[in-house]
Design a protein around this nucleic acid. Structure first.
Lengths: 363, 363
DNA sequence: GTGAAAGCGCTAACAG
DNA sequence: CTGTTAGCGCTTTCAC
């Protein structure tokens, strides 16, 4: 239908003609009345029940289609005790890991008829609590959760699980809770990144985290520490920084780090957002990368390739993690038994070495 | 509560102790029974009705809190004909404009108690139709919509509006529909960007769009064409490209463009995603930016500053657009009259000139 | 094969 | 100020 026809249509309504296809309250009762059938027959026909004859089903379906019948989501959810909604609770969406993970989740549940609803905590524990609390109202059948950087307490999640709302963690998990967890090999990949920097000649490597409680940050820091130890390098507290949500604050923090007498010659940054910070700080301090400082960053940014120098990244399997998490949740919703393999899925990240971390002879 | 206590808690339940705060079905009926009140009294008390005495309200509230009562969202929505859910329908979320706009939307509705639900069309018209169709089920009270690149038909939106679901467009609008539209000054800012490139010496400027129907692309192209004309430059069809969703395809397209005999010396890119494409193509072809090619891109990427050369952008008021759109929608939901000013809000973008577009003497 | 009737949990007339 | 009652639209026994 073209724009023009649409206008023509609305003109017709205004002059009082009624078009059945646009009737306001097409419900089962109206269909039943029109077809001289009972409510329950129509309901069953629409749900393709074996109790109903093929002929009747056809009549019902035809009218439903003609009248553009759409079942009321609330009525069926109230009655049926499920909504076909899956909640995805994320700290933020301006991060390529999460935005890609969403695609994986949608890919996994589309065929199953679930709706994906995205809730953002904005890295706030209070926000996360409020959102999960709301889920106790039955709004969603299950939850995919990646916790906020502030979250250390587990009560709000436990409470939801106690109400029989299935929860699956992905990426940022709460280890102590008995829910499936889909993660990447954070420690191992941080180890790899750190070892790579060491191999490229770094001796004073800094680690930038965003939280001292977050599972991913602890794991990544552990991998970093382990790598230093395995290569007989000292672990200095001063080289392990916790950044904030505040861009300007981070900039100052990193700048100060790079102005120290014993300036780091390598940096492992645990989140994508810190990329800009480090590049800006280096630029302002006129430090050359990779000559003066080498950088490896956990990031799924496509843009890594066009930065100068191009950015060495630990690329996480965002799509696959989202997909795997959603698949496990669907299993739970369908009451299928979980295998031990479902309880903890580890999908490895890939270290992609680019210019920002490589020892150069000429440049 | 610590992780340890949470475990202790679950142990207690397993041994059969019952904790009222974790009872499964706390509903109004249960509260009423416990308090020796009627259903409606409890309901009214919870909704803070003037009909109920302060003392009773207090008793009800206390027990509700103690029992951790959470109203069933479906029951109240079914009854009250509204869900307190607002849908935000977006083409994608891996784009800083949209991810920032979401924050503006949330900021606007948080205080009003609405829930923001994000639906992604993935730039698919069919997907958009399916999503809007679903909204006819009463799932959401209102819709904020930025249409897919494929969308030209308006019937699906009109149908929703005919069902009295308020729709507010933002950014990517359908001009022919009688719904409020919140946009930026696409044509003017494209004009400004183009004129800027001309002022910097460009004579053969290309325009990269992502659709020939999308409102923003048409507007931006119109501004580009106008600027060329106003400066006595010819408008060549060959310089107006429609890119696809496919990154590799775009790369080839742009590469071919930059390999032409009369290679463009300036590019106006209409969406952020094309930044990477253009930088990569230039790099591969060993074209220097801005010496050989100057670039201005519609983008809200924070990373624009650290690119080399740093990227000249048309920065859209993403947060404010989202906020304004949500505010208008809330007005509609609250049945407040819309002023003519609400029907079409234009919030200007800002041209931020950086290195990628500036004529250089020495570099 | 079809239909009557009982609710899911909540709200809002309307009575008292 | 509090209670009784009638649904919202749908699904699901259980009868016919």
């Amino acid at each position: 239908m073209t724009g023009l026809l649409a206008w023509a249509g609305s003109f017709i309504y205004e002059t009082g003609f009624v078009d059945l296809s646009d009737m306001k309250n097409v419900n089962i009762r109206a269909l039943a009345r029109e077809l001289n059938l009972s409510l329950s027959t129509v309901s069953k026909a629409l749900r393709d029940s074996y109790e109903i004859s093929a002929a009747t089903k056809e009549r019902v379906r035809a009218l439903a289609a003609e009248w553009n019948y759409i079942p009321n989501a609330y009525a069926s959810s109230l009655r049926g005790r499920r909504s076909k909604n899956i909640a995805v609770v994320l700290p933020e969406v301006a991060d390529s890991f999460f935005s890609i993970a969403i695609n994986g989740i949608e890919a996994a549940v589309k065929a199953k008829g679930y709706h994906v609803i995205i809730y953002l905590t904005h890295e706030s524990y209070a926000g996360e609590v409020a959102i999960l609390k709301d889920f106790q109202s039955g709004r969603v059948d299950g939850v995919l959760l990646s916790v906020s950087r502030e979250t250390t307490d587990t009560a709000h999640v436990q409470e939801l699980m106690d109400k029989d709302v299935p929860v699956v963690f992905f990426d940022r998990v709460l280890e102590t809770l008995a829910a499936p967890k889909i993660v990447t090999d954070d420690a191992e990949s941080a180890y790899k990144a750190t070892a790579h920097l060491i191999a490229q000649g770094c001796r004073e490597i800094a680690y930038l985290g965003i939280s001292d409680s977050l599972s991913i940050c602890r794991q990544r820091m552990a991998g970093y520490v382990q790598a230093l130890g395995d290569h007989q390098l000292p672990v200095h507290q001063r080289n392990m920084l916790i950044c904030t949500t505040d861009g300007a604050g981070n900039f100052q923090l990193v700048k100060k780090l790079l102005q120290r007498t014993h300036r780091p010659d390598g940096i492992v940054a645990s989140v994508e957002k810190l990329t800009t910070t480090v590049y800006q700080a280096c630029r302002q301090l006129q430090l050359r990368m990779p000559e003066d400082v080498k950088l490896a960053c956990f990031s799924n940014l496509e843009i890594a390739t066009i930065l100068q120098p191009s950015l060495t990244t630990v690329t996480q399997p965002a799509f696959d993690m989202g997909k795997a998490a959603a698949e496990v949740l669907v299993k739970m919703l369908e009451k299928k038994p979980l295998t031990p393999k479902d309880i903890r899925i580890v999908i490895p990240s890939v270290l992609v070495v680019r210019e920002s971390s490589v020892k150069t002879s000429k440049r």
